[in-house]
Design a protein around this nucleic acid. Structure first.
Lengths: 145, 145
DNA sequence: TTCATGTTTGTAATCATTACAGTTATAATA
DNA sequence: TATTATAACTGTAATGATTACAAACATGAA
């Protein structure tokens, strides 16, 4: 438990979300595990602490968080949704070989990503995905040769 | 049939892909319908011309095309994969209200999107997604007030 | 205490996608 | 032309993430 529960609670109240124990645990998990977890990963971790925890609750909560802009839904893989606390702006890289998702820091933030409107459409969220072969997999295939 | 079948055939042969009738029809459809179709949309259209057409063939073909860089898989919605001919570079905007996906032209192409490498990872594909409320839905909700 | 409202839970249903095995088409060779 | 090997196509069944739904539970107000 790295993140202070009081801060987590305040974060929810500030957003007008009732701070139930389940919601606090989910938000705390997201703060402490910036690994783009799936619903299943979150469930398997939290069910230890809350034996009655339901997957449906996690789905509902993450949908609510997403609606309020607290988390981003990352659909890069096309298989399952992954979740990310909406903190400093960064992009994502998916390795087509090993499936891992890396954070990509933006040295020069792209102004297009920071627009509030585009072609008359109101932007709530912007994401960029890169797909290819990651550093580690590149090295592995080099060694094989 | 806007696009010339001979060109389509050449495109496949150039990529080293055997130009079967099914593949030609799928590629032709993608060229003529730049609407980010789903597998189901493509299937329902093509089954009229090829009554034996199978969904599995479309899945297989699109996966092959994606591998060869002929099409891009768009996973913006998280529900189903949409496909786009990989022509001039553009981004996508998803309306959270009506679900429509708009093309977004880039007046000033972002240099980060054109890199071949990032953090040592080799980039094959780059996409940017915007999510929010589209122009039409914004106007509709204005009128209601 | 009662009541209303919102939240959580577990199960069943949905639906996109994949696995698989049988069939068919294609191209090379005899 | 006939044969054969290989690749492509097809239809069905299975998978697995997500959602729908209804019952149980918690909370706070009256």
């Amino acid at each position: 438990m790295i993140t202070n529960m009081k801060h987590i609670k305040k974060e929810l109240i500030d957003q007008g979300i009732k701070p139930t124990y389940q919601r606090l645990c989910i938000l705390e998990y997201l703060h402490d595990n910036l690994v783009h977890p799936t619903v299943d990963i979150i469930y398997n971790k939290l069910v230890n602490r809350i034996p009655t925890m339901s997957r449906t609750t996690i789905y509902n909560t993450l949908k609510l968080f997403s609606k309020m802009g607290i988390v981003n839904e990352i659909t890069i893989s096309g298989i399952e949704t992954r979740y990310d606390i909406n903190c400093e702006f960064h992009h994502h890289f998916l390795c087509k070989k090993c499936g891992k998702i890396y954070d990509v820091d933006l040295t020069n933030p792209c102004f297009q990503m920071e627009q509030k409107k585009i072609d008359g459409h109101k932007i709530y969220e912007a994401q960029s995905y890169f797909k290819g072969i990651c550093k580690k997999c590149l090295e592995k295939s080099k060694n094989k040769k």
